[in-house]
Design a protein around this nucleic acid. Structure first.
Length: 301
DNA sequence: GTACTTGTTAAACT
DNA sequence: TAGTTTAACAAGTA
Protein backbone atom coordinates (compact mmCIF):
# COMPACT_ATOMS: atom_id res chain seq x y z
CA UNK A 1 0.00 0.00 0.00
CA UNK A 2 1.11 3.51 -0.63
CA UNK A 3 -0.28 6.61 0.81
CA UNK A 4 -0.04 9.89 -0.97
CA UNK A 5 0.02 12.70 1.51
CA UNK A 6 0.23 15.45 -1.00
CA UNK A 7 0.74 15.68 -4.69
CA UNK A 8 1.27 18.85 -6.59
CA UNK A 9 -1.48 19.79 -8.94
CA UNK A 10 -0.71 19.13 -12.54
CA UNK A 11 -0.24 22.35 -14.48
CA UNK A 12 -2.84 21.42 -17.08
CA UNK A 13 -5.47 21.21 -14.36
CA UNK A 14 -4.97 24.78 -13.27
CA UNK A 15 -6.93 27.44 -15.13
CA UNK A 16 -4.27 30.07 -14.72
CA UNK A 17 -1.39 27.81 -15.74
CA UNK A 18 0.48 29.05 -12.71
CA UNK A 19 2.33 26.81 -10.34
CA UNK A 20 0.23 25.78 -7.41
CA UNK A 21 1.27 26.88 -3.95
CA UNK A 22 0.24 25.46 -0.67
CA UNK A 23 -1.58 27.90 1.54
CA UNK A 24 -2.78 27.38 5.07
CA UNK A 25 -5.61 24.96 4.19
CA UNK A 26 -3.26 22.79 2.18
CA UNK A 27 -0.64 22.79 4.92
CA UNK A 28 -3.33 21.95 7.48
CA UNK A 29 -4.52 19.09 5.30
CA UNK A 30 -0.99 17.76 5.02
CA UNK A 31 -0.48 18.06 8.78
CA UNK A 32 -3.69 16.16 9.52
CA UNK A 33 -2.59 13.42 7.16
CA UNK A 34 0.90 13.26 8.63
CA UNK A 35 -0.60 13.05 12.12
CA UNK A 36 -2.14 9.73 11.16
CA UNK A 37 1.10 8.16 9.94
CA UNK A 38 4.21 9.71 11.48
CA UNK A 39 3.88 9.61 15.27
CA UNK A 40 5.82 6.67 16.70
CA UNK A 41 8.07 6.24 13.69
CA UNK A 42 11.80 5.99 14.26
CA UNK A 43 14.03 7.92 11.86
CA UNK A 44 16.54 5.62 10.15
CA UNK A 45 18.28 8.34 8.18
CA UNK A 46 17.69 11.69 6.57
CA UNK A 47 19.39 12.17 3.22
CA UNK A 48 19.82 15.69 1.91
CA UNK A 49 20.03 15.96 -1.86
CA UNK A 50 20.15 19.74 -1.97
CA UNK A 51 22.02 21.52 0.79
CA UNK A 52 20.04 24.75 0.53
CA UNK A 53 16.89 22.88 1.52
CA UNK A 54 18.20 21.69 4.87
CA UNK A 55 19.64 23.49 7.86
CA UNK A 56 21.17 21.57 10.74
CA UNK A 57 22.78 18.21 11.34
CA UNK A 58 21.01 15.18 9.88
CA UNK A 59 22.98 12.88 12.16
CA UNK A 60 21.12 14.24 15.19
CA UNK A 61 17.90 12.80 13.83
CA UNK A 62 18.88 9.18 13.30
CA UNK A 63 17.34 6.83 15.82
CA UNK A 64 14.92 9.45 17.15
CA UNK A 65 11.20 8.80 17.22
CA UNK A 66 8.62 11.28 15.98
CA UNK A 67 6.27 12.16 18.81
CA UNK A 68 4.00 14.82 17.41
CA UNK A 69 3.03 16.63 14.21
CA UNK A 70 1.71 20.17 14.45
CA UNK A 71 1.43 23.40 12.49
CA UNK A 72 2.02 27.04 13.21
CA UNK A 73 1.14 29.41 10.40
CA UNK A 74 2.46 27.55 7.35
CA UNK A 75 5.29 25.88 9.27
CA UNK A 76 5.00 22.15 9.91
CA UNK A 77 6.52 21.13 13.23
CA UNK A 78 7.66 17.55 13.81
CA UNK A 79 8.51 16.98 17.46
CA UNK A 80 11.03 14.20 18.11
CA UNK A 81 12.69 12.67 21.15
CA UNK A 82 15.31 14.52 23.17
CA UNK A 83 14.05 18.05 22.69
CA UNK A 84 14.53 17.84 18.92
CA UNK A 85 12.22 19.24 16.25
CA UNK A 86 12.11 19.42 12.51
CA UNK A 87 10.54 22.59 11.14
CA UNK A 88 9.30 22.40 7.56
CA UNK A 89 8.18 25.22 5.30
CA UNK A 90 6.87 24.29 1.85
CA UNK A 91 6.95 27.88 0.56
CA UNK A 92 5.67 27.88 -3.00
CA UNK A 93 6.40 24.51 -4.51
CA UNK A 94 7.23 22.17 -1.65
CA UNK A 95 5.58 18.75 -1.47
CA UNK A 96 5.68 16.07 1.19
CA UNK A 97 5.02 12.60 -0.08
CA UNK A 98 4.75 9.70 2.28
CA UNK A 99 5.37 6.30 0.76
CA UNK A 100 4.46 3.17 2.66
CA UNK A 101 6.13 0.38 0.75
CA UNK A 102 5.89 -0.34 -2.96
CA UNK A 103 2.74 0.63 -4.79
CA UNK A 104 0.34 -2.10 -5.75
CA UNK A 105 -1.25 -0.09 -8.49
CA UNK A 106 -0.87 -1.07 -12.11
CA UNK A 107 2.11 0.20 -14.04
CA UNK A 108 0.14 2.57 -16.23
CA UNK A 109 -1.41 4.45 -13.36
CA UNK A 110 -0.03 8.00 -13.23
CA UNK A 111 0.11 8.01 -9.45
CA UNK A 112 1.92 4.69 -9.35
CA UNK A 113 4.43 5.95 -11.87
CA UNK A 114 4.94 9.07 -9.84
CA UNK A 115 5.60 7.10 -6.67
CA UNK A 116 7.94 4.72 -8.40
CA UNK A 117 9.98 7.57 -9.79
CA UNK A 118 10.86 8.88 -6.37
CA UNK A 119 13.29 10.32 -5.61
CA UNK A 120 12.56 12.53 -8.60
CA UNK A 121 14.37 15.42 -10.22
CA UNK A 122 13.14 17.91 -7.65
CA UNK A 123 13.44 15.70 -4.57
CA UNK A 124 15.55 17.63 -2.08
CA UNK A 125 15.31 15.57 1.11
CA UNK A 126 14.50 11.93 1.83
CA UNK A 127 13.60 10.84 5.37
CA UNK A 128 13.68 7.08 5.72
CA UNK A 129 12.09 5.41 8.73
CA UNK A 130 13.02 2.21 10.53
CA UNK A 131 9.88 0.44 9.29
CA UNK A 132 10.87 1.01 5.64
CA UNK A 133 8.45 3.83 5.02
CA UNK A 134 9.74 7.07 3.52
CA UNK A 135 8.89 10.75 3.49
CA UNK A 136 10.06 12.60 0.38
CA UNK A 137 10.40 16.36 0.18
CA UNK A 138 10.13 17.65 -3.37
CA UNK A 139 10.60 21.33 -4.09
CA UNK A 140 11.05 22.56 -7.59
CA UNK A 141 12.05 26.12 -6.74
CA UNK A 142 14.08 25.39 -3.62
CA UNK A 143 12.45 28.11 -1.51
CA UNK A 144 11.16 25.65 1.03
CA UNK A 145 13.25 24.28 3.88
CA UNK A 146 13.68 21.83 6.71
CA UNK A 147 15.38 23.05 9.86
CA UNK A 148 16.58 21.00 12.79
CA UNK A 149 15.69 22.80 15.99
CA UNK A 150 15.40 22.33 19.71
CA UNK A 151 12.53 23.66 21.76
CA UNK A 152 14.20 27.02 22.26
CA UNK A 153 15.16 27.63 18.63
CA UNK A 154 11.76 26.38 17.54
CA UNK A 155 10.02 28.92 19.73
CA UNK A 156 12.37 31.58 18.47
CA UNK A 157 11.58 30.69 14.87
CA UNK A 158 7.83 30.52 15.44
CA UNK A 159 7.64 33.67 17.52
CA UNK A 160 8.02 35.70 14.35
CA UNK A 161 4.60 34.64 13.21
CA UNK A 162 1.46 36.29 14.50
CA UNK A 163 -1.39 33.95 15.46
CA UNK A 164 -3.27 32.16 12.70
CA UNK A 165 -6.26 33.90 11.23
CA UNK A 166 -8.38 31.02 12.56
CA UNK A 167 -6.84 31.29 16.03
CA UNK A 168 -9.17 32.76 18.70
CA UNK A 169 -6.37 35.16 19.67
CA UNK A 170 -7.19 37.13 16.55
CA UNK A 171 -10.14 39.27 17.47
CA UNK A 172 -11.87 42.23 15.87
CA UNK A 173 -10.39 44.52 18.54
CA UNK A 174 -6.89 43.17 17.90
CA UNK A 175 -7.21 43.86 14.17
CA UNK A 176 -8.79 47.23 14.74
CA UNK A 177 -5.82 48.22 16.86
CA UNK A 178 -3.30 46.95 14.28
CA UNK A 179 -5.14 48.43 11.30
CA UNK A 180 -5.45 51.83 12.94
CA UNK A 181 -1.71 52.35 12.50
CA UNK A 182 -1.55 51.10 8.94
CA UNK A 183 -2.27 53.22 5.95
CA UNK A 184 -1.16 50.57 3.42
CA UNK A 185 -3.80 48.77 1.35
CA UNK A 186 -5.96 46.35 3.33
CA UNK A 187 -4.97 43.53 0.98
CA UNK A 188 -1.28 44.04 1.73
CA UNK A 189 -2.00 44.46 5.44
CA UNK A 190 -3.88 41.18 5.89
CA UNK A 191 -1.01 39.34 4.21
CA UNK A 192 1.51 40.75 6.71
CA UNK A 193 2.50 37.76 8.82
CA UNK A 194 3.50 39.97 11.73
CA UNK A 195 -0.20 40.89 12.05
CA UNK A 196 -2.01 37.68 11.04
CA UNK A 197 -0.59 34.39 9.81
CA UNK A 198 -1.92 32.09 7.19
CA UNK A 199 -3.51 34.52 4.75
CA UNK A 200 -1.92 33.80 1.39
CA UNK A 201 -2.66 35.63 -1.82
CA UNK A 202 -5.55 33.43 -2.91
CA UNK A 203 -7.41 33.64 0.40
CA UNK A 204 -6.66 37.34 0.79
CA UNK A 205 -8.32 38.03 -2.56
CA UNK A 206 -11.24 35.70 -1.96
CA UNK A 207 -11.73 36.86 1.63
CA UNK A 208 -11.92 40.50 0.57
CA UNK A 209 -14.42 39.59 -2.12
CA UNK A 210 -16.49 37.63 0.37
CA UNK A 211 -16.45 40.63 2.70
CA UNK A 212 -17.29 43.05 -0.12
CA UNK A 213 -14.27 45.21 0.65
CA UNK A 214 -12.16 46.98 -1.96
CA UNK A 215 -8.58 45.65 -1.63
CA UNK A 216 -7.07 49.06 -2.36
CA UNK A 217 -8.62 50.75 0.67
CA UNK A 218 -6.16 51.81 3.34
CA UNK A 219 -6.30 49.50 6.35
CA UNK A 220 -7.01 52.43 8.65
CA UNK A 221 -10.12 53.35 6.65
CA UNK A 222 -12.03 50.23 7.69
CA UNK A 223 -14.58 50.65 10.45
CA UNK A 224 -15.22 48.07 13.14
CA UNK A 225 -18.14 46.53 11.32
CA UNK A 226 -16.06 46.06 8.17
CA UNK A 227 -13.17 44.56 10.12
CA UNK A 228 -15.56 42.11 11.75
CA UNK A 229 -16.96 41.17 8.36
CA UNK A 230 -13.48 40.77 6.89
CA UNK A 231 -12.29 38.51 9.70
CA UNK A 232 -15.41 36.40 9.38
CA UNK A 233 -14.96 36.15 5.60
CA UNK A 234 -11.29 35.25 5.82
CA UNK A 235 -12.16 32.46 8.24
CA UNK A 236 -14.97 31.30 5.99
CA UNK A 237 -12.81 30.91 2.90
CA UNK A 238 -9.92 29.35 4.80
CA UNK A 239 -12.08 26.85 6.67
CA UNK A 240 -13.77 26.04 3.39
CA UNK A 241 -10.34 25.51 1.92
CA UNK A 242 -9.41 23.14 4.71
CA UNK A 243 -12.59 21.19 4.15
CA UNK A 244 -12.12 20.98 0.41
CA UNK A 245 -8.40 20.37 0.74
CA UNK A 246 -9.27 17.00 2.13
CA UNK A 247 -11.57 16.34 -0.75
CA UNK A 248 -8.81 17.18 -3.17
CA UNK A 249 -6.48 14.65 -1.61
CA UNK A 250 -9.08 11.94 -2.13
CA UNK A 251 -9.39 12.94 -5.74
CA UNK A 252 -5.68 12.63 -6.13
CA UNK A 253 -5.68 9.21 -4.61
CA UNK A 254 -8.40 8.15 -6.96
CA UNK A 255 -6.66 9.38 -10.01
CA UNK A 256 -5.80 12.59 -11.55
CA UNK A 257 -5.40 15.52 -9.46
CA UNK A 258 -7.54 18.44 -9.05
CA UNK A 259 -10.91 18.64 -10.38
CA UNK A 260 -12.58 18.99 -7.12
CA UNK A 261 -12.46 21.05 -4.08
CA UNK A 262 -9.92 23.66 -4.56
CA UNK A 263 -11.31 25.36 -7.60
CA UNK A 264 -14.77 25.52 -6.13
CA UNK A 265 -13.41 27.72 -3.37
CA UNK A 266 -12.03 30.29 -5.74
CA UNK A 267 -14.23 33.35 -6.03
CA UNK A 268 -11.98 35.82 -7.79
CA UNK A 269 -8.37 34.65 -7.66
CA UNK A 270 -6.95 33.98 -11.12
CA UNK A 271 -10.22 34.97 -12.81
CA UNK A 272 -9.10 38.16 -14.53
CA UNK A 273 -11.61 39.20 -17.19
CA UNK A 274 -14.08 36.47 -16.23
CA UNK A 275 -17.52 37.50 -14.96
CA UNK A 276 -18.00 37.97 -11.22
CA UNK A 277 -20.13 35.12 -9.87
CA UNK A 278 -22.32 37.63 -8.09
CA UNK A 279 -22.88 40.46 -10.56
CA UNK A 280 -21.22 39.47 -13.84
CA UNK A 281 -18.80 42.39 -13.90
CA UNK A 282 -15.41 41.29 -15.29
CA UNK A 283 -12.91 40.56 -12.51
CA UNK A 284 -10.03 43.01 -12.47
CA UNK A 285 -6.40 42.32 -11.75
CA UNK A 286 -4.10 44.91 -10.21
CA UNK A 287 -0.67 44.85 -8.59
CA UNK A 288 -0.28 45.42 -4.88
CA UNK A 289 2.98 44.99 -3.06
CA UNK A 290 4.37 43.22 -6.10
CA UNK A 291 1.58 40.63 -6.07
CA UNK A 292 -1.52 40.22 -8.17
CA UNK A 293 -4.81 41.18 -6.59
CA UNK A 294 -8.07 40.05 -8.18
CA UNK A 295 -11.34 41.77 -7.31
CA UNK A 296 -14.76 42.85 -8.50
CA UNK A 297 -14.99 46.62 -8.68
CA UNK A 298 -18.78 46.40 -8.43
CA UNK A 299 -19.12 44.11 -5.41
CA UNK A 300 -16.15 45.40 -3.45
CA UNK A 301 -16.33 48.92 -2.07
C1' DG B 1 16.48 37.77 -23.67
C1' DT B 2 12.58 40.05 -20.79
C1' DA B 3 8.92 40.10 -17.75
C1' DC B 4 6.52 37.81 -14.45
C1' DT B 5 4.98 34.44 -10.82
C1' DT B 6 5.11 32.69 -5.72
C1' DG B 7 5.99 33.51 0.46
C1' DT B 8 8.95 35.40 3.29
C1' DT B 9 12.59 38.15 4.93
C1' DA B 10 15.93 41.65 5.06
C1' DA B 11 17.43 45.91 3.68
C1' DA B 12 16.51 50.39 2.28
C1' DC B 13 13.64 53.75 2.25
C1' DT B 14 10.28 57.79 4.27
C1' DT C 1 11.22 54.57 15.60
C1' DA C 2 7.69 52.77 13.05
C1' DG C 3 5.57 52.11 8.86
C1' DT C 4 6.23 51.22 3.87
C1' DT C 5 8.50 49.75 -0.28
C1' DT C 6 11.63 47.03 -2.78
C1' DA C 7 14.86 43.47 -3.80
C1' DA C 8 16.20 38.98 -3.29
C1' DC C 9 15.72 34.12 -3.54
C1' DA C 10 14.91 29.64 -7.78
C1' DA C 11 13.19 28.01 -11.58
C1' DG C 12 9.88 27.84 -14.50
C1' DT C 13 6.44 29.88 -18.23
C1' DA C 14 4.59 33.33 -21.65
Amino acid sequence: MFCLVYLQKKPECIPTQRPYMPELPEVETIVRRLQTVLPGKKVAEVVVLRNKSFQGDTALLSGKKIRQVARRAKVIVLTLDDDLCILIHLKMTGQLIYVDGPSRLGGGHPTADFIQQLPAKHTRIVARFADDTTLFFNDQRVFGWWKVANTASRDDELSRYAPDVIDPEITVSYLQQKFSRRHSPIKVTIMDSSIISGVGNIYACDGLFEAGIDPTRPADSLNRREIAQLLKSLRTVILQGIELGGATIKDYMNIDGLSGGYQQVIRVYGREGLPCFTCGTPIQRIKQGGRSTYFCSQCQR
